[in-house]
Amino acid sequence: MMNDSNQPLLRVVNLKKHFPGPRGRFGAHSAAVKAVDGVDLELRRGETLALVGESGSGKSTLGRAILQLERPSSGQVLFDGVDLVGVPDKGMRRYRRRMQMVFQDPHASLNPRMSVFDIISEPLVIHGLCGSRTERKRRVAELLDMVSLPSSAGDRYPREFSGGQRQRIGIARALAVRPEMIVADEAVSALDVSIQAQIINLLNAVQKELNLAHLFIAHDLSVVHHIADRVAVMYLGKVVEIGTGEAIFKDPRHPYTRLLLQAAPIPDPRIEAERRAAAPTGRGDWRSSYTAEMAAAPLFEVAPGHLVQALPEVVAQAKPYGARP
């Protein structure tokens, strides 16, 4: 059962991460910030799931909570059948080998005082892989080659590299321990647009080559379009719509998803024209009409594998599909 390929590698069940609000005058906390407020997700081996939403929607917190970098307030993170929420910090090490992260800011995520060789070989040292220095050298050269950096890069320091090159170093570090899952938290949003494509192609290539489960967190839908098998849209700490890339881009049901799509042009004139024609107009400020009651609505399956928050308008529109409640 442990390695059953039909079993998702990662299953997130009703995950919540609440941060205490600012302290008031008498030391009492005001209302908690519900960064992640009851999320359910599944991620299979070899699958790319994109997590999109605006800043503050909780997508980065969700990524960190899955990796236990921020301990969740409640819920379950089942990684290969084991609930990581109950695993103490010390016991996490053996799971960290299997799930790695690529960070947003390539200038901040590499220790400026470590050489590139030390940075990439650090996970090998931590997990006791590649015992001797010659073995580590060979593995680092292999990894540098995989991310298209010259092997001479090992002797240099992060500051000597551009943003895109640094992100390649970060990816090499994440791949060093041969993980099964990678969480890329806005991995390209700090890069120039011309470099973004290179890094996305690199991530996509290694994901295919190593059959990685890939959770790709982004706020830019046009970036997601190329690589995601499935897309989950987050708003105010909840997943409001989830489905295949095609379903989300061609048949968005949730008003927030539509809002996001309107904000991002799609580099395909045909789809772009269709989308513009279908875009609702003159709807006023949708956000202000989004009530707490609507936010609490459960997910509703409008088509196989396409789930949307059960807002009245979504349910009404979904009737022709004969969807089950």
Binding site: L67, L69, M92, R93, R96, R97, Q100, M101, F103, Q104, D105, A108, S109, L110, N111, P112, R113, M114, E122, P123, I126, H127, G170, R173, V177
Partner: peptide, 25 residues
């Protein structure tokens, strides 16, 4: 800082984080 978070994500223990990442910086 993000590189300390990165070290934690790699599985580095507290002594390693203190000596290799925090102290030098």
């Amino acid at each position: 800082s993000e590189y300390v978070t990165a070290a934690r994500a790699l599985g580095a223990g507290t002594p390693r984080i203190l000596l290799r990442h925090i102290l030098p910086n």
